[in-house]
Design a protein around this nucleic acid. Structure first.
Length: 181
DNA sequence: TTACCGATCGCA
DNA sequence: GCGATCGGTAAA
């Protein structure tokens, strides 16, 4: 049973949403085809007071999505060749996002560990920036009632500042979780 | 308009 | 350990 996550799910604290996204399903619909992948690793990004966040400074064109409607996608192109897939959290007007770092697919697909590979695997590009994940179309996140096993948290990965904040969440024992740390 | 740099990955 | 590669942002 698949239930699309409603906007209310996203309109809460980033860290809380990040933790609860573990075990949820990302659904990517193509014409006549559908890919699903279970989320096994996330990271929360806040607004101010979080130097690692794009929304740490002032409101700009790029990060305005993070201040906008919760449940929208925030897709960022980085290092010239990688897209990263985030979901906007917190209420409208307050910045926040959750980066999906790794998913575990239905078994037979090669691992999609790491934000760049994940986006490539799901064919998520710039066009999905601001896509409404609560719409239940093309790209969305759903709950199938699965309860993840043990989860852990740690410092975030690949960033320069605020490493000490324990805002990375992952499912323990998943072979798809990033190997760092 | 230009210069710089980043929430990465793959290969040496 | 380092280069590839490109859009956003700030500075001029």
């Amino acid at each position: 049973m698949l239930k699309v996550l409603r906007r209310g799910f996203y309109a809460r604290r980033s860290a809380l949403v990040a933790g609860e996204l573990l075990g949820k399903i990302i659904v990517r619909e193509f014409p006549g085809k559908k890919i699903t992948a279970r989320i096994v690793e996330t990271e929360a990004y806040l607004g101010k007071n979080d130097p690692a966040s794009h929304a740490a400074g002032k409101l700009t064109k790029r990060n305005s999505v993070m201040f906008g409607v919760p449940g929208h996608a925030y897709v960022y192109f980085c290092y010239g060749c990688h897209f990263m897939f985030n979901t906007v959290t917190e209420k409208k007007g307050k910045a926040g996002a959750v980066l999906i770092r790794a998913v575990e697919s239905d078994g037979r697909v090669p691992r999609a560990n790491g934000p760049g590979k994940l986006a490539k695997y799901l064919r998520i590009g710039r066009a999905f920036n601001e896509h409404d994940l609560a719409s239940g179309k093309k790209l969305y996140i759903a709950d199938d009632g699965y309860a993840p096993g043990k989860t852990g948290r740690s410092g975030r990965i690949g960033i320069s500042g605020a490493r000490e904040k324990l805002l990375r969440f992952f499912i323990k024992g998943s072979p798809h979780v990033s190997k760092y740390r």
